[in-house]
Design a protein around this nucleic acid. Sequence first.
DNA 1: TCATCAATTCGACAGTTATCGAAGTATCGA
DNA 2: TCGATACTTCGATAACTGTCGAATTGATGA
Lengths: 96, 96
Amino acid sequence: MAAGKTKALSKRQRELIAKALADPRRVEILKQIGSVNCVACGDIRARQDVSAATLSHHMKELEMAGLIEIGREGKYANLTLRRDVLRAYLENLGKI
Amino acid sequence: MAAGKTKALSKRQRELIAKALADPRRVEILKQIGSVNCVACGDIRARQDVSAATLSHHMKELEMAGLIEIGREGKYANLTLRRDVLRAYLENLGKI
DNA sequence: TCATCAATTCGACAGTTATCGAAGTATCGA
DNA sequence: TCGATACTTCGATAACTGTCGAATTGATGA
């Protein structure tokens, strides 16, 4: 805490984040994205046994929750973790 | 962080907690339990428009996740928030 | 003992979601 | 231009989950 002010999250976004984090696979994906700075979907598929369709679905969920940003670079997707959003969510729950 | 050592959570328990937190109603319930020290189910029903059956279901979910403890006192249930478990979960996610 | 109250369990139902294969779109290299 | 690659969208399906009413269990007090 201490440091910077925390991003404000709407009730709606907190719910989306909670749902997004409820799937173990998505948490794994988040970890993978977080461990490097930028990842493409292919990199994730290399480590997680999942179809492209399913992965795409999860990406959309994570993006809608605001937990990742998807930047398109030609035919690749650049996935980046939004640590500020994740931290805001955690701090919010910490207040319970 | 700094202060005390964090409780260790199994993968399984982290998943249960994430699922438990994915329902907005359960988060509300947690807040309510956390705001006072001990609550009975009836107190919660007084504030949340939900049937006894549904509430009981949510309680079981929260207890299985380890987020609350349910102590029976005669015909009442004493609900207490397990802050140590919640904090351990949040710290775990913070490592992403 | 009996009625009442708190909470749980059961059975059912509607809505959600994770998953996939197949088809589609867009980009790149040859 | 053509094929391959990277990802998305669509449609379908199986599994899960939140919800309730009704029936049940267990404790309390009259």
